[in-house]
Amino acid sequence: MNIISRIAAGALLGTLLVPAVFAQTATQTYDPSAPKTRAEVKADLVAWRAAGYDPFDWINYPTNAQQAGQIVAARRAQSAATPQ
C-alpha cells in the first residue's frame, strides 16, 4: 500500500469518527454527584480563578470562595440558557 492510499484511508477514517465523538458528548447531561475527571477539575479551577478566587488567599478564604462560586454558577447558568 503506498503512502497516498494510507493517507486517504486515514482521512476517511477520521471523517467517519468525528461525528460519532461529537454526538456522544452532546448527549451527556450534567450530574453533580458523578465523579469528575482530572481535566474537569482543572477546568473548574481555571473558571474559579477567572472569577477572582485565589487559593492562596487564606485571610479571605470563605468569602472569596463563595463569591467565586456564585460567579461561576451564574456564568454556567447563562451559558446553559443561551442557545448555541
Rank of each mutant, 00 (worst) to 15 (best):
I71K: 15
N2V: 01
T27R: 14
Q84T: 04
F22Q: 05
Q66D: 12
I7D: 03
A47V: 02
I3N: 07
A34W: 04
D44Y: 08
S79F: 05
Q24T: 05
P62H: 13
F56T: 09
T82S: 09
A8S: 06
R38H: 12
N64R: 07
T82G: 07
L16V: 10
Y30A: 11
G10D: 10
Q66L: 12
D31S: 06
P35L: 08
M1E: 00
Q84R: 07
I59F: 14
A20M: 15
R76P: 00
A47C: 01
A80F: 09
V21A: 15
L16H: 03
V46I: 13
I7G: 05
Y53V: 00
Q24S: 12
R49C: 12
V18P: 00
A77R: 00
I7A: 13
A77N: 04
G14L: 09
A65I: 06
S33N: 11
L13G: 06
A74R: 06
T37E: 03
D44N: 14
S5F: 07
R75P: 00
G52D: 02
P35H: 06
M1A: 09
G52L: 02
F22S: 04
L12R: 14
Q66F: 11
G10P: 00
Y61E: 11
I59G: 09
T82V: 12
W58N: 14
Q24C: 02
N64S: 09
A74H: 05
A51N: 00
A80M: 13
I7N: 02
V21F: 13
L45W: 02
P62N: 15
R75S: 02
V72N: 04
Q66E: 12
